[in-house]
């Protein structure tokens, strides 16, 4: 894993969640969450279905804003030390800082080039050479450049499922975000595509901070440096991955890992 980039100093956490409660209308979904996502590390969120791990992920880029009546009722979320609910926070800038990849690949029905350039274009970039450069860099980082460099103008929907998902990653990192959120990015993919995405995550961790939600505990072990286990809206345990999987402190974690409940 990204051993070389971390050894120097310990930078402040990129994302910090402090004593956060979150509600959908009147029904609370998350209780008293405390989480520190470390710089250039992969943090995995695991837990049974409906435990709130996707909700927690979506709190980080305020995607929950689109759900009417959903709100943070207590505590705060800091990205690079800045409370993202402050009045002076520009949502478009926040989302430029915090990229996101979804469960199901969702490239736009546009060309490959336009897909990757989209994020830059909406933030006002018009210079063709800057766009070209960003597209090439993003596609290289997501290991698509060699496969696709000759058909950048082809429709993105013509790609295979795995390629589409990597294209979505390329699209998300084109704006050089500080944090990349991934919501079960491999759940709709075949094992080989999954493997490719996982390899990609190792490489991306050298340049980006990644938070990933996964159902697959093996995957959490394979890709992450830290793991958080959530259960019924509570953060049960947060520890370095190796420690959490080999030597969980909480009983609940242990029984979940053993598969006693799901």
């Amino acid at each position: 894993m990204s051993a070389d980039s971390t050894a120097k100093t310990t930078p402040p956490p990129v994302v910090q969640v402090r004593d956060m409660d979150f509600c959908y209308g009147t029904s609370p979904a998350l209780f008293d969450i405390n989480l520190k996502v470390k710089y250039h590390r992969v943090t995995a969120l695991i837990g049974p279905s409906g435990c709130g791990k996707s909700t927690l992920l979506r709190c980080i880029n305020r995607m929950n804003d689109r759900v009417p009546s959903a709100r943070v009722t207590k505590g705060e979320v800091l990205v690079k030390g800045k409370n993202i609910h402050d009045a002076d926070v520009d949502l478009t800038q926040l989302r430029k800082q915090v990229g996101m990849v979804f469960q199901k690949s969702n490239p736009f029905p546009k060309s490959i080039y336009e897909n990757v350039a989209y994020g830059l274009r909406i933030h006002g970039e018009k210079n063709k050479s800057v766009l070209d450069e960003a597209v090439e860099r993003s596609l290289r980082q997501s290991a698509l450049w060699d496969e696709l460099k000759d058909r950048l103008n082809a429709n993105a929907l013509a790609l295979s499922g795995g390629q589409q998902q990597r294209l979505c990653i390329a699209r998300a990192i084109a704006t050089l975000p500080d944090v990349l959120l991934m919501d079960e990015p491999c759940s709709a993919l075949d094992p080989i595509s999954t493997l490719k995405i996982e390899e990609l995550m190792h490489q991306l961790a050298q340049e980006y901070t990644i938070v990933i939600v996964t159902h697959n505990m093996q995957q959490a072990v394979r890709v992450s440096d830290y793991t958080a286990f959530l259960h019924l809206g509570k953060l049960v345990e947060f520890a370095p991955t190796e420690e959490l999987f080999t030597n969980p402190r909480e009983k609940l974690t242990e029984s979940y890992l053993r598969g006693t409940f799901s």
Binding site: M63, Q93, L94, R95, G99, M100, N106, C168, R171, A172
Partner: peptide, 14 residues
Amino acid sequence: PRAYIDASDALGAT
């Protein structure tokens, strides 16, 4: 599809 709108929103589009 809703997914297109999700993707665009997540990239910070207005």
